[in-house]
Simulated assay, not measured.
Amino acid sequence: MKLQVAIDRVSLDRAKEVAAQLDPVVDIIEMGTSLVKDYGCYALNKEELGIHHAELLLDTKTIDEGQYEFDKGFATGADILTVMGAASLGTLQTCYQVAEQAHRQMFIDLMEVDEDKTRQILGFDHAIYGIHHAKDSKTNFDAADSVDLFHATYPKVSRINVAGGIDIDQAAKLSQQGIADTVIVGGKIMKSDDPLQAAKEFMKVIK
């Protein structure tokens, strides 16, 4: 299992500082939607961020204009870009085509996507399907149970990522479960006194 650390709602300087610290340790560094909106994709250039080991994900949350947004995102050196599962099938197909041609990756954010829509968008063999519990949602979320249910319902999906308030106990449970490809952690690392040490602790339990 891989660890993806979501850096969000911080200054650009702080994002660069943490990214440089985490780069040798974690598998994927995510620049969250707030950073994309605050500073733009070009400010989050992989080289400028000093990321050399980890993959870089820009959480663009594309919902339309797939060709434009994915072309621009990949031009910054990003390895993975996100598109909302709620987007039109045409947008998803366009984003996937751009990702395939660029030899990069498309992450489909399944936040608030129902079963009917999910079944319509299962044909992207190389895409990452992200189970994502909304930050604003007040409902309870068990990451391992959600992954297990998704895998049982859509067994042909080979790349499943999961995010949503995941702590170290949930990360360990997901690792033992052995279904999810990547666990995405934000606050439990970024809000800790020492994000680097916190990331190392997560790495210990998932590897």
Rank of each mutant, 00 (worst) to 15 (best):
residue 2 K to M: 11
residue 4 Q to N: 04
residue 6 A to S: 02
residue 8 D to Q: 05
residue 8 D to F: 00
residue 9 R to D: 14
residue 10 V to Y: 03
residue 11 S to D: 03
residue 12 L to Q: 07
residue 13 D to A: 15
residue 15 A to F: 00
residue 16 K to L: 08
residue 19 A to W: 07
residue 21 Q to F: 01
residue 23 D to G: 06
residue 24 P to T: 03
residue 26 V to K: 07
residue 26 V to D: 08
residue 27 D to V: 03
residue 28 I to V: 05
residue 28 I to K: 06
residue 29 I to S: 03
residue 30 E to W: 01
residue 31 M to L: 15
residue 32 G to P: 00
residue 32 G to Q: 12
residue 37 K to V: 04
residue 40 G to E: 14
residue 40 G to W: 05
residue 41 C to Q: 12
residue 42 Y to W: 07
residue 43 A to M: 07
residue 44 L to P: 02
residue 48 E to W: 02
residue 48 E to P: 02
residue 50 G to I: 04
residue 50 G to N: 01
residue 51 I to H: 00
residue 53 H to W: 02
residue 55 E to Q: 13
residue 56 L to M: 01
residue 58 L to F: 13
residue 59 D to G: 04
residue 60 T to R: 01
residue 63 I to A: 15
residue 64 D to E: 07
residue 64 D to K: 06
residue 65 E to A: 15
residue 65 E to P: 02
residue 68 Y to M: 09
residue 68 Y to V: 04
residue 69 E to R: 08
residue 70 F to R: 08
residue 71 D to H: 15
residue 74 F to Q: 06
residue 79 D to H: 10
residue 79 D to W: 04
residue 80 I to G: 00
residue 82 T to G: 03
residue 82 T to W: 00
residue 85 G to M: 03
residue 85 G to C: 00
residue 91 T to I: 09
residue 94 T to V: 03
residue 97 Q to M: 06
residue 98 V to A: 02
residue 99 A to G: 08
residue 101 Q to C: 08
residue 101 Q to S: 12
residue 101 Q to T: 11
residue 103 H to A: 15
residue 105 Q to M: 11
residue 106 M to Q: 07
residue 107 F to K: 15
residue 108 I to V: 09
residue 110 L to D: 08
residue 110 L to A: 05
residue 111 M to Q: 11
residue 111 M to A: 08
residue 112 E to A: 09
residue 113 V to W: 00
residue 113 V to E: 04
residue 116 D to E: 12
residue 116 D to P: 01
residue 121 I to H: 06
residue 122 L to T: 13
residue 123 G to N: 12
residue 124 F to E: 01
residue 125 D to I: 14
residue 127 A to K: 09
residue 128 I to H: 11
residue 130 G to S: 14
residue 133 H to Q: 12
residue 134 A to I: 07
residue 135 K to N: 10
residue 140 N to G: 13
residue 141 F to T: 02
residue 142 D to N: 13
residue 143 A to I: 09
residue 143 A to C: 10
residue 145 D to Q: 14
residue 148 D to W: 12
residue 148 D to G: 03
residue 149 L to R: 14
residue 156 K to E: 14
residue 157 V to I: 15
residue 164 G to M: 08
residue 167 D to P: 10
residue 170 Q to V: 10
residue 171 A to Y: 07
residue 172 A to I: 08
residue 173 K to I: 09
residue 176 Q to D: 09
residue 176 Q to S: 05
residue 176 Q to A: 08
residue 183 V to Y: 08
residue 184 I to N: 07
residue 184 I to S: 09
residue 191 K to V: 01
residue 194 D to Y: 09
residue 195 P to I: 05
residue 197 Q to L: 04
residue 200 K to M: 12
residue 201 E to M: 01
residue 201 E to V: 05
residue 202 F to P: 10
residue 202 F to T: 12
residue 205 V to W: 11
residue 206 I to H: 05
